[in-house]
Amino acid sequence: MTSDAGPGANMISIRGLTKTFDKTIHAVRNVDLDVAEGEVVVIVGPSGSGKSTILRCINLLEIPTEGTVEVDGFEVTDPRTDIDRVRAEVGMVFQQFNLFPHLTVMENITLAQRKVRDRSRGEAREMGMRQLVHVGIPEKADAYPRQLSGGQQQRVAIARALAMEPKVMLFDEPTSALDPEMVKEVLDVMLELVSEGMTMVVVTHEMGFARAAADRLVFIDEGEIVEIGPPDEVFANPAQERTRAFFDKILY
């Protein structure tokens, strides 16, 4: 998959995205969102507001009820698109890490490289080691996930996604399941990715990260984009009452 888009062009383009569950519950309503190449977009909002659903519609873990999603010029909502090829370019990090417990750290990282990218064992291991160094735990290559702390597991999950050399990284509340003392080590890895110019969409409750890393902050409530803009502006001067009410509740 080669990118036709030049610098600053849209990596992700969402139009009229609507997702309903059981035909009545509107998780996401008519959302439009573009993410430029190299841009970092942080999505915040109350629980159940549809943040994660939007993220999961980008790599089609949820199938949108209406609307279109384009990633790197490929329309993922088109049934003719080979979704597996698009997913290989879109790294995803989950709240619950979702490492494969029956495989070692290195096997976790090499599995998809070998099966999807057709890399040899040696190539895959070399890339795996590079990414483990990247997230700061090369010594854990032969450990099993259960032998690692939550923060280490999440860093392995990030390394696993990065080893596919994705064009976009999606983070679905990556620190929400972590003990407080482990949040920072994961956010540090993410900040490093930001500085390397990775295109990222991050759903999080970490407002400090949003302030430090986001090019644009999106506030979502009841499945709709309420406000969108540079984080400093949105934090300092929310235009909408709902945004203000949300920040009043969580910031102090």
Binding site: L61, D84, F94, F100, L111
Partner: peptide, 27 residues
């Protein structure tokens, strides 16, 4: 096997069949 396991497999680009044989069935 928790659904998050196959979601993780699929999000890495593994096909349905590869996810079943390498991720879900062994567990």
């Amino acid at each position: 096997v928790p659904p998050g396991q196959s979601e993780a497999g699929r999000s890495l680009g593994l096909t349905r069949r590869q996810t079943m044989s390498s991720v879900v069935l062994p567990q």
